[in-house]
Design a protein around this nucleic acid. Sequence first.
RNA 1: GGGGAUGUGGUGGAAUUGGUAGACACGCUAGCCUUAGGAGCUAGUGCCGCAAGGCGUGAAGGUUCAAGUCCUUUCAUCCCCACCA
Length: 820
Amino acid sequence: MKRYNPKEIEPRWQKTWEDQGIYHATEDLSKPERYVLEYFPYPSAATMHVGHVRNYTIGDAIARSMRMQGYNVLHPMGWDAFGLPAENYAIKTHTSPQAVIKDSTQRFKAQLTQMGFSYDWTREINSSDPEYYRWTQWLFLLLFKRGLAYQKEALVNWDPVDKTVLANEQVIDGRADRSGAVVEKKALKQWFFKITEYADRLAADLDDLDWSDSIKAMQRNWIGRSTGAELTFTVDGSDTPITVFTTRADTIFSAAFIVLAPEHPLVAKITTKAQQSAVEQYAKQTAGKTDLERQEDEKEKTGVFTGAYALNPANDEKLPIWVADFVLAGYGTGAVFGDIHDERDFEFLQKFDIPARVTVIPDDPEEAKKVQAKAYAYTDEGILIDSGEFSGQRSETARDKIIAWLAGKQMAQEKVNYKIRDWLISRQRYWGAPIPIIHCPKDGAVPVPEDQLPVKLPELKSYEPSGDGRSPLARVPEFVNTTCPKCGGPAQRETDTMDGFACSSWYFLRFADPHNNQAPFDKAKAEFWLPVDDYIGGAEHAVMHLLYARFWTKVMHDEGLISFDEPFSSLRNHGMILAPDGQKMSKSKGNTISPSELIEQGYGADSIRLMELFIGPWDQMAAWSIEGLGGTFRFLQRVWTLVHEYKEAQPVANNAAKEKAILIATHTAIKRVSQDIHELGFNTAIAALMEFTNQLYKLKAEDNFAAVSAWKFATASLVQLLAPFAPHITEELWQELGHTESVHISAWPLWEDKLLVADTITVVVQVNGKVRANLRLPADSSEESIVAAAKVDAKVAGYLKGKDIKKTIYVPKKLVSFVV
RNA sequence: GGGGAUGUGGUGGAAUUGGUAGACACGCUAGCCUUAGGAGCUAGUGCCGCAAGGCGUGAAGGUUCAAGUCCUUUCAUCCCCACCA
């Protein structure tokens, strides 16, 4: 018998599949369509480790099983190639980002091929290819045309290490997510996408998506929709209004003070002479703080009195106006009213000794006493007191009435606020899609005409960022200097490039029509394949990529380019693979495990793929185990041996004695594996295949392949059911079983429920809830005979002896329970 | 502080509608075998106990003939967001 040698069979089949093009997808209407997509990888200088590979293994198992089940499967792959790592690596190694990317894509593609994934490589795309970013630029201009791309001078997040600005989403705890540098605030003129205009839809449309609750929650959290009202206070002694946002209009009668953010435009206007220097000093102090410092100072409230007062629109009370940095300039109106019914305000008024009044009390009288004694900030709903005509009402119902009452006096307006900010997309770096805008002294920002796209990246001698807030492209006069498309006069190109997330906001559409040179994609083709049926990716994309891609999809929908407005109907968030020590795998920790090395050691891609799935539920994290990999390798070896023994066996006659048992085992396996795959229970599907194999080994020992037709069906089914997980060994065995076509385009085996019925059943007998016996009985036994058999069972009888049976519970063909 | 998730043997993990807890695998123990291999095969392996039996799904209560699963309370861990009014 040939030995199972993955090193020999795997590369051979990989080549055959590619040569025969069995994974090419076409718009074939005769079969149901299925678009399976894994987030396209960033080809970095490092190699992939087994953690990355899990993502693709899950996608491939879905794609392969769907293909065998008769679906027309689109399973493409490409490269998210723009971005800082390639550029930084090029600078460090004195080469070009183009060369770095070319090299890493080749290496990544080799690794993916080595794992035997069923990609349609004719659809390969690369976001840094001018033929791709031409359409990224085209889509930028679409947003520009629709008023969704604009330039504004703003205080932005500046990364002093990578020397570029960053989106809010790329700042984690005050630090840049890539470089780790403490982010500084810089006033720069930048390009933004108006994602805030879509905030409501982005939040609402989550309801209909088949995504995990946690990812939906993260998105809702990030969008941060909150409903409330804007209330108008008036500066005492003038008619200057101060508008504040609140979700708790019901607490208006408790208002004790007003706080303006230090950057609020009214600060300078209302501050009294006496307080002027103190206020200015405070504003200067907070302006100099990074976000990180601000967060560190969070524990202690700071602030300064402006000397001015405001009038409460509800009761005309005079309230001191303060300036404090716990109020954020960018949210709501940059001003709030403070009271005792909010933890932060409570802290503030305690520190600065501002008088306060309780206007909401809990139902419990004991608690109400404590609240009225101002023992703590009561922030829940309750009964209103000291609230004019609203006293005695419940806070949650009084809220809208108070807003309506104030609105009648023109002092309030219902309002929805969002935490999400517009998406800052300019980057002062080289390796991205140039923003296709020409600045003309006469005509302003003019879009590059469509027929002049792409605006290509020029080759440079140095890619070093300048650090002055301008991209390296600004140092290339041939690139910068051009003529205005409108007036023909001298003009300058925009030198910022786009955030890499712009490229990944539409790549899933490009896969539907990757070679189109007339449009980003053909509408019919896009609608044939999309939305993506199974989108598989890590949780790192929960906020940024998934939010941006949904936003762009909605814009394209609104433009009429597509008729759907959500890109990914179901999202599969795989769990991370940790190193065997339970830590995250990372190059710096030196604990990464490369699939290539494991393949080199002889395990083979198939064993690795099995281990990726068998290690636990696909959506939960798990630590890699090299011993476990030995286990999946052994399993494949057993399958290999079994099929070869079957092939080489020479049964004398078609002895059908074991036929039924073999058929039951086979149909049971088909049912379990099919259902498990349907529910994405890959680990249990593989367990079922192992059990099936173990059963077949036992049956083989009993009849030595004598039941010819049953064994033929069993071995073929085993190979087919295993094919989505271990494509190489199954392909090899499939051919050995005499097939000429690939197993991966063979028809998935079907089970018949009527063949699953065994001759005997096992009935559990309980007495007072405790299991006392197992009875093996004929499958066609009646209830009466089963109960009777249970009663006379020696062990059960012992427990029933001398007692009255008060109750008998019978679960058909499964269980008898006596209560005595 | 807000949100989301998870707790089951030595380990990873299984358990339709409540119906034999621990499938499958790793590890471990014993034996067999031999082309001495990354072997393979057989048997065993939740805990206590010689056994009968008892105890067992983070903890404590509850419902039920029967609870990993349902209800109440609680503890721990992980992830995301966080002075968002």
